[in-house]
Design a protein around this nucleic acid. Structure first.
Length: 874
RNA sequence: GGGAGCAUAGCUCAGUUGGUUUAGAGCAUCUGCCUUACAAGCAGAGGGUCCGCGGUUCGAACCCGUGUGCUCCCA
């Protein structure tokens, strides 16, 4: 069969993925084997595949494919996250495009649109993962709003509530005025802003005394209408006489106290702080401390409320402009300064976030986080890289309560039911809630009850993911969860270490009594070439499917993995995909070369092919052990680099060249057969990283009934160091001779005669043919002479090589080179001898280190002698 | 303001309890080759004050201190 010039990925990939699916290789059922399970970090249903997913899922696929090839029962569970706020925003936008406003719909109507949207677009990202070659068990596809899953979320809520871990409280939260919902701290993005600092004076309320003012500075003058105090530092001499007095809020004409607290920085602004407990985090705390009035001047849509007393119904940002001339008119405005600060915006809607007082549901984190901190600190759960342990500990030790309610419709509705008098019950159903409330209010009916309007934070469902995908909560103790839980490895981004990883660990211990996973691999963030985070707004996110089309999935997997150690951000550059494609091509061409020999096998042994076969076998064993160690340490990119070099350099550049027969010459059948075995073993090692091309080559090399995808990898075997050393020496000699040819401008086609002076002729005899072929030598002889007239001398270790050629020797150039080398060697010798003459070194260093230094010394001395002799001869 | 991380070749990065390191790889650069697997290739080469300073040690890219620069997280 004719093989194409280059590897053509697209058709091959589709064909093999179909085949693997058909054979059911990705399916997993509990059996007697050891389980290796991974749950996918569920992508948002709104998502499309981007570079972050590509990296993350490639890593998971590498781990799961390797486990599968090592005889473990590998199970990789796919699924998606309902992504409350992101999805609701998408649906609202879709409705707007259809001319429908969310406020015109009932909750149920809205939800039916949302489900419609989810069914239509929610699976796109999972389809895209197939293109990447991901070996997920598709029959297990889960969704965080599946019926059982939802029931479990509600069960967890009611359970935590009954344990007293969940409470309802009025707190200052970040308010998104566009989505009309609370945001977690993590969903607020701070941007630098050029603001104005308004200096406003408040008249001291002193009906009889002299007129006096106290001046405050604020960037949000509209909040003046909600002021309930002015605070100064108790040590501030400027204001000492005013402490305990009262001031009048401009425009509002309200009388507020002047209080003193260390919180106020004397050197910031005017040193006097206006306190607005309803609209500022810190002011709220001051308000609590001094029992100040809370005046909420803002509606949920960001417009001014009745309580503001003026500008009612106008947006707060508009009011910020309108209030300035009013203050000026009232004689209260002192001055306006430019001021650079950071302003929070909603991650989802980009609305300027307003701190707002709101009644929300909370999880009391200190009560549930204990075992989760210990598990990581005691390495019961291992982080890769371990440096993230510090970050984790810091957060866990300073953990704050978790606001779990969101003012959204899409998600799990909070199972709290309110009676008309405001009392409520938390229960899995309305009926149960009614029964509970009837104990104190027997006359209540179901019609009287109203369920909480809010939904739960998305992370309140995804923290159950590692066990609920196996129905560990909805069908406790079932065979699957017993078999697959705890899962083996979680692969995720460090940015969600708190949102998700920490909370999964907490939920795991709380509900399964065990950790959710043993290892956590943190990927880096994929950035563009300039180091910027990839984002839609920057438009620097490449089209992944387009890249797969252009380079092939294997090349994309290679490109994203080759320079991405765990936990390091990667600067993505298409050039690395090109490298991957070139690697594909190299493999393909090696296949073509080997296939050319298929019909040319003969029984004749080519003398020194045995050396090559023996050497590569040992080299393969050595690298296999290295790669296995690297993979066990989760050093995936190092493992891939090692394989890349084994295949490109050792296999293609050295081994295949060493065994390659002359033009249209036969190849020894045993050598050919062993070469097939080696090539297959290489595809085996590489398969987890580049599944498609390796499967293709495996089958093209020779007929196989099995597939590489499920082939069991060969176990580690030992390698013979002497053989490896002999191979290295041969490479070194070849390179040195080629270098000498190059430097002396001997054309590649020009043949040379080679004379070798060595104490160990026997070690060269088996490799004479290889050596001759690789350096284009017409003949090889051994000599006892120190010099060969008219030749170029090359020294490798203690042996000398004399190159004789037609080419005139350029004595000057040769001399210059030798002198340069001599200087280097002499300097080297000095450094080694200095070390060896240091008594403390000889006393303290390990014996093998000293032996090594002695060898260095002897080799350097031998080389220096050779160079000196050569110089004399010139 | 609090905490963490990083700094190695032109670029991107390895360097795993301090000793095969006068420091490696890929890309880029330079030289020579269209050699019947591969020019998306082959054979070679050049390129480094391991951020500065101080310390520990027989020995430091690696450990400690300090300075500088960058990044991230939290407020």
């Amino acid at each position: 069969m004719e093989l194409s010039k280059n590897f053509i990925p697209n058709e091959t990939e589709a064909r093999w993925y179909e085949h693997w699916l058909e054979k059911g290789y990705f399916k997993s059922e509990p059996d007697e084997r050891e389980a290796y399970s991974i749950v996918i970090p569920p992508p948002n249903v709104t998502g499309v595949l981007h570079m972050g997913h590509c990296l993350n899922n490639t890593i998971q696929d590498i781990l799961i494919r390797r486990a599968r090839m090592q005889g473990k029962n590998a199970c990789w569970v796919p699924g998606t996250d309902h992504a409350s706020i992101a999805t609701e925003a998408k649906v609202v936008q879709m409705l707007r495009e259809r001319g429908i406003s969310k406020s015109s719909l009932s909750r149920d109507e809205f939800l039916s649109y949302a489900w419609e949207w989810k069914e239509k677009y929610g699976g796109i990202i999972l389809q895209q993962l197939r293109k990447l070659g991901c070996s997920l068990d598709w029959d297990r596809t889960s969704f965080t709003m599946d019926p059982d899953y939802s029931a479990s979320v509600i069960k967890v809520f009611t359970d935590l509530y009954s344990k007293g871990y969940i409470y309802r409280g009025k707190r200052m939260i970040n308010w998104d005025v566009k989505a009309k919902t609370a945001l977690s701290d993590e969903e607020v993005i701070y941007k630098d802003a050029q603001s104005k600092l308004y200096h406003v004076r408040y008249r001291i309320d002193r009906p009889d005394g002299p007129e006096e003012y106290i001046t405050i500075a604020t960037v949000r003058p509209e909040t003046i209408l909600g002021d309930s105090a002015i605070c100064v530092n108790p040590a501030d001499e400027r204001y000492k006489h005013l402490q305990g007095q009262y001031a009048i809020v401009p425009l509002a004409n309200r009388r507020i106290p002047i209080i003193a607290d260390d919180y106020v920085a004397m050197d910031f602004g005017t040193g006097a702080l206006k306190v607005t407990p309803a609209h500022d985090m810190n002011d709220y705390q001051l308000g609590e401390k001094y029992n100040l009035e809370v005046i909420d001047t803002m509606n949920d849509d960001g417009t001014m409320s009745e309580a503001a007393g003026m500008f009612i119904g106008i947006d707060r940002l508009e009011v910020r402009k309108l209030i300035v001339p009013e203050l000026e008119k009232a004689g209260s405005l002192v001055k306006i300064e430019d001021y650079n600060n950071q302003v929070g915006y909603s991650e989802r809607t980009d609305a300027m976030v307003e701190p707002r007082l709101s009644l929300q549901w909370w999880v009391s984190m200190k009560k549930i986080s204990g075992p989760a901190l210990d598990a990581v600190m005691q390495n019961d759960i291992n982080f890769h890289p371990a440096k993230f342990k510090n970050l984790y500990r810091h957060w866990m030790e300073n953990i704050k309560d978790w606001c779990i309610s969101r003012q959204l419709w899409w998600g799990h509705r909070i199972p709290a039911y309110y009676a008309p008098d405001g009392s409520y019950a938390v229960a899995a159903s309305k009926e149960e809630a009614l029964a509970e409330l009837q104990q104190t209010q027997p006359a209540l009916t179901a019609e009287d009850l109203r369920q909480d309007e809010d939904c739960l934070d998305t992370w309140f469902s995804s923290w159950l993911w590692p066990f609920e995908v196996f129905k560990g909560m909805s069908a406790p103790g079932n065979a699957e969860v017993k078999y697959y839980y705890p899962t083996s490895t979680l692969v995720t981004a460090p940015e969600i270490i708190f949102f998700w990883v920490a909370r999964m660990i907490m939920a795991g211990y709380e509900y399964m009594g065990e950790k959710p996973f043993s290892d956590v691999y943190f990927t880096g963030i994929v950035r563009d070439k300039q180091g910027r985070k990839m984002s839609k707004s920057l438009g620097n996110s490449p089209d992944l499917l387009g890249l797969i089309d252009k380079y092939g999935a294997d090349a994309v997997r290679f490109g994203i993995m080759i320079a991405s150690p765990a936990g390091n951000d990667i600067l993505f550059d298409e050039a690395s995909l090109e490298q991957g494609r070139n690697f594909n091509n190299k493999l393909w061409n090696a296949l073509k070369l080997v296939k050319m020999w298929e019909g040319r096998q003969s029984g004749d042994a080519v003398a020194d092919s045995n050396f090559a076969v023996n050497w590569f076998g040992n080299r393969l064993s050595q690298v296999r052990a290295e790669v296995n160690t690297l993979l066990e340490q989760f050093r995936l990119s190092e493992a891939l680099k090692t394989l890349y070099s084994l295949i490109w350099d050792d296999f293609c550049s050295w081994y295949l060249e060493w065994i390659k027969p002359g033009f249209e010459q036969p190849i020894n059948a045993a050598v050919y057969q062993q070469t097939l075995v080696y090539f297959e073993e290489l595809t085996e090692l590489l398969h987890p990283f580049m599944p498609f091309i390796t499967e293709e080559i495996y089958h093209l090399l020779r007929e196989h009934k099995d597939d590489l995808c499920v082939k069991q990898q060969k176990e580690n075997s030992t390698s013979d160091q002497h053989v490896l050393d002999a191979g290295e020496l041969l490479k070194q000699v070849i390179s040195a001779l080629r270098d000498a040819r190059n430097k002396n401008q001997i054309k590649p086609k020009d043949s040379i005669n080679l004379q070798i002076r060595t104490a160990d002729t026997a070690s060269y005899q088996p490799i004479e043919h290889i050596l001759a072929k690789q350096v284009n030598a017409g003949s090889i002889q051994y000599t006892q002479n120190d010099t060969v007239p008219g030749s170029i001398v090359v020294a490798v270790e203690k042996d000398k090589f004399f190159i004789e050629s037609e080419q005139q020797v350029d004595a000057e150039a040769l001399k210059a080179n030798l002198l340069k080398d001599l200087a280097y060697q002499e300097q080297f010798l000095v450094s080694v001898q200095k070390k060896l003459s240091n008594e403390r070194f000889v006393q303290n260093a390990k014996p093998e280190i000293i032996a090594l230094e002695r060898k260095k010394e002897a080799d350097a001395e031998a080389r220096i002698l050779t160079i000196r002799q050569s110089l004399e001869n010139l």
